[in-house]
Nucleic acid binder design. Structure first.
Lengths: 137, 137
DNA sequence: CCTTGACCTGGAGCGCGCTCCAGGTCGTAC
DNA sequence: GTACGACCTGGAGCGCGCTCCAGGTCAAGG
């Protein structure tokens, strides 16, 4: 139960597009859960086609989007922003500037986060090395 | 309304211990909110003394703990763990090993987080530089 | 004396991002 | 034929970490 045929494979498509994947497969490969994947679809972060039996069939493209989404989530981009971003993508190429702006602003957020983490790490390291315990400085 | 006198200041304490602070002051200095500070107290992350009027009077020591707490929160240490940590501190010096372990494990978590962020940042940078948009790779 | 504003308490409410559930359909394996 | 496991839908529930609210006290300023 690995791959699903979405469309009748003629056998000789150009540059084998690797058969579509079932939701379970995608969840496993992207370290998410089927629940999360269905949730992302529900809230419009991705649209996935169905096979003959009505089951989700993730194309390569879909999987790449899932990977993108999970990366953005891992870096704490709010789902709202991701929805906005996807909306812009759907609206066409003329929204590229706004998308770019969104990404740039997210980049800044990530950098700030990194700085915070570095600061916290310093405190943690101090606690660990100069170990007297307690919660003060 | 800046500083509060907690105990009758004899005028010549040793090495001026800086007067206790009101909750609003602490919130401002630590970039938190009074609500959060009260919440932390409620859930046992800190115990703060009161002045004659029944108001919280944060000592230097208390403020340092608040700083510590906020740093740990910024680095995503779960409140549960922070509660455990404080509990260990209260139990005395013999719990130092467990505290150390807690901190070490948190350090690892932070490092993992940093790695994730770096990976996400790479994706973001790619999106920004090679800008064609879309949500796939 | 009265107003104002910072503080107090106990408890309810909320936004986020999932996560779980009930009840049902498929399709292969025995 | 039937049992199983992976999938489907719509909707409810949940854990976290605050955040807000009502109703009240208190101290200083005009």
């Amino acid at each position: 139960m690995t791959a699903i045929e979405t469309a009748p494979s003629t056998g000789t498509e150009r540059a084998e597009a690797t058969a579509a994947l079932a939701i379970g497969e995608v969840a496993e490969r992207t370290s998410t859960t089927v629940d999360t994947l269905r949730y992302y679809e529900r809230i419009g972060l991705i649209e996935v086609g169905r096979d003959a039996g009505g089951r989700r069939a993730y194309t390569d493209h879909d999987v790449r989007r899932v990977v993108f989404l999970t990366r953005m989530r891992q870096s704490e981009m709010p789902i709202r922003d991701l929805q906005r971003y996807v909306e812009l993508v759907n609206e066409g190429p003329h929204t590229a500037p706004e998308r770019l702006a969104l990404m740039e602003s997210h980049r800044e957020a990530v950098r700030r986060r990194q700085t915070e983490l570095a600061a916290a790490l310093a405190v943690i390291d101090f606690k660990i090395t100069a170990y007297g315990g307690t919660c003060g400085a």
